[in-house]
Amino acid sequence: MAAPKKSAAQAAGNGSRSLSPPEFTREQELHALRDMLLIRRFEEKAGQLYGMGAIGGFCHLYIGQEAIVVGMQMALKDGDQVITGYRDHGHMLACGMDAKGVMAELTGRRGGYSKGKGGSMHMFSMEKNFFGGHGIVGAQVSLGTGLAFANRYRGNDNVSLAYFGDGASNQGQVYESFNMAELWKLPVIYIIENNRYAMGTSVTRSSAQTDFSKRGVSFNIPGEQVDGMDVRAVKAAGDKAVKWCREGNGPFILEMQTYRYRGHSMSDPAKYRTREEVDKVRHDSDPIEQVRNRLLAAKVTEDELKKIDAGVREIVNAAADFAQNDPEPDVSELYTDIYR
């Protein structure tokens, strides 16, 4: 690939952080608001259905982190691929997957994206280039690198996005992947969603290097810390990283600084942090409130915003209805889809 040879330092400067992000147009603000709200309301509903016993097992909510997937998605083009771990509902909705199919998978019904055989952590859509939904912490990083390998092999200009957590960043295969990705100049963006905790372990208790944008330094992969609560900052960083990858310069690391409001999964009593800590983030930097406030300041009326929320709630309620009334998979599905 004829790639301009730039050094990592030239690209971004490790650990650098752009100060004030470029403004969004009104359309972009409204789009971001709607998509983030859809994720928020969807997750709230999922939490509720879990509480009613309609969703089983593990259920990891994305509330608080919405700006990341929504902002990154705004930087992509058709054909780019997305892969993530088990906290995946937001990624799927941002990719344009149908809320009904996602919710019905959570309830284990036949209309779910995996016919009810995958559940919350394992969903895929070939159509939307969403490659899962993976339950093993860190596995998606090598797999996402493989998606980028395929793009490079085919000589197209698609970019793959591999999302993972601050906890996952300490897995060995992450660094095996970093090495190969830079060595082979693979078009992959590693998006580290640093929400400060891996289950009950805070970043400072698990990580020798807590500036995750520097995790690629020994492989010469450029990295950047991004305010993951500001959808504009995410989009701007995404644009830059996507360009870098598309032009054949190899991988890019984005550390998204964010926060999850809910417990790790539904049964997490969250005793490792204080209520005040959570409230402070919610109050000071909620990604949705930020957009709402900017829109209100730009003279969009409360009514218009209420309408958006109502539209989103309608989608979510319809998804919940479908997910509770759709039948479970037929027993004959037990032995299908093991081989093709």
Binding site: F131, L143, G146, S177
Partner: peptide
């Protein structure tokens, strides 16, 4: 030729296969 990185290149292989190679 891969680096000595079995976990990583197995994953890269599977990812490439998921993409149709």
């Amino acid at each position: 030729d891969t680096p000595i990185t079995e976990h990583g290149f197995a994953g890269v292989g599977v990812g490439a296969a998921m993409a149709g190679l």
